[in-house]
Design a protein around this nucleic acid. Structure first.
Lengths: 223, 223
DNA sequence: CGCGATATTGACTACAGTCAATTTCCGTGG
DNA sequence: CCACGGAAATTGACTGTAGTCAATATCGCG
């Protein structure tokens, strides 16, 4: 989940296994709070999330944290650069993943469809990261929060009343670190969205978007 | 050129042709100010910059601009997502590039070394974009400018006195749009760096870094 | 029901943005 | 080579958005 400008050009959510690619895969489970890998680790496998949500993070020396992305079912994570992981990855809630050998990306391991699917995923990742750069570089706090909620509800929410409902597995602090903000600013943006009637909260972790169109407008799309 | 946290893990600057890969390449020239491609164009070719500097940009609907990266010699640009370009690309100064067919990325066109080199470049691009996200999300204005100048002088500058010297082909406005700042803020950061003795200007476009260590410190590295 | 963690709100601060006025740069032409 | 003029960069004064620090409020789990 790379939350970007518009919800329209999101990656296909199908699992590779649904495309008939089952070779070389290995089911893997991670409990909430457990790490799947850490920055600097040698990349042995790539993973496709099949259930749950994971979190990819980086830290500066002094402890400042940036959440690079959230991995939802369908997302492929763990791409190497110079053979190593450049983020930490841990699970926000219990998650299961499908593991592929790293060589599946390089050569396909004799499975051209898998090779191609992983390459496509890598290319989408570049674009997704560019979207994130655009958001952090040029959007206001409210626009960032609206963009975030817009993508999440559109892609992973369920219909509810006339709008959409979704449970957020990440804390305000995770959202803040993803959007380059503080928890207080995220909280205030939530309040603004609530008071303007765009959405409401059902507990702290579940949001109900009543006016998806207004939310999309506030997200300030790029095309 | 993706300017990141540390100058250490920059991509190798060698040209693919130096790796013995010459097949399927086509020399291309772009004059300063001319576009190589635009957002939305179908991707026909990938390019490796061989001379000059190009600029990759995105716009929001309302005109806000984000410079995604600067392409220096050795950099590979033009990776497709869903078959299309997601940035504009134009030249800051007269540039030459080596063009590869898009299929060289997908299959290698019977040239495994080229295929591998392009894949590696795509993976480095993911990591570079993540670095950029970290910078925009969590660094101060001065840290961003210091990071930017640190990478540029380290990777593309020439030795000069006890420090390094480099000519900047991009305007303050380009730097601002790359770093998510305004031209005034970039200008003030330059002034701060000058007054602290870290660097000096020789005209508006040429900087001389006198204390690379101090500059690196101000860049706030990530490891 | 109670408690610790998380989220929200409030008051104030500060960093970067805005708007405007110079100043400097640098290409052009005399 | 120097002078001119438009563009780019710098500086200044002020504003505003988001950050900081601190005090509740709410959540949700045991």
């Amino acid at each position: 989940m790379y939350v970007t400008l518009t919800a329209e050009n999101r990656p296909p959510r199908g699992l590779l296994t649904e495309h008939g690619v089952t070779a070389a895969g290995l089911p893997t489970a991670v409990r909430a709070g457990q790490h799947l890998y850490r920055e600097g680790d040698t990349v042995e496998r790539l993973y496709q999330v099949t259930r749950g949500v994971v979190r990819l993070t980086r830290m500066l020396e002094d402890g400042r944290r940036q959440v690079i992305s959230f991995g939802y079912p369908g997302d492929i994570i763990g791409f190497p650069s110079d053979g190593r992981h450049h983020t930490d990855c841990d699970a926000l809630v219990d998650a299961t993943l499908f593991a592929y050998r790293r060589s599946a990306l390089d050569s396909g391991d004799g499975d051209p469809a898998l090779h191609r699917a992983l390459l496509e995923a890598a290319l989408r990742e570049i674009s997704a990261m560019q979207d994130h750069v655009m958001m952090l570089g040029r959007k206001s706090a409210l626009e960032r929060v609206a963009s975030f909620l817009n993508v999440l509800t559109t892609c992973y929410g369920e219909d509810f009343d006339l709008g959409r409902r979704i449970e957020l597995p990440m804390s305000r602090s995770d959202i803040a670190d993803f959007l380059g903000l503080t928890t207080e600013t995220v909280s205030r943006a939530f309040t603004t969205l609530r008071k303007s009637g765009v959405m409401s909260l059902d507990g702290a972790q579940t949001i109900v978007v009543h006016d998806p169109g207004a939310l999309a407008d506030m997200a300030a799309g790029d095309d």
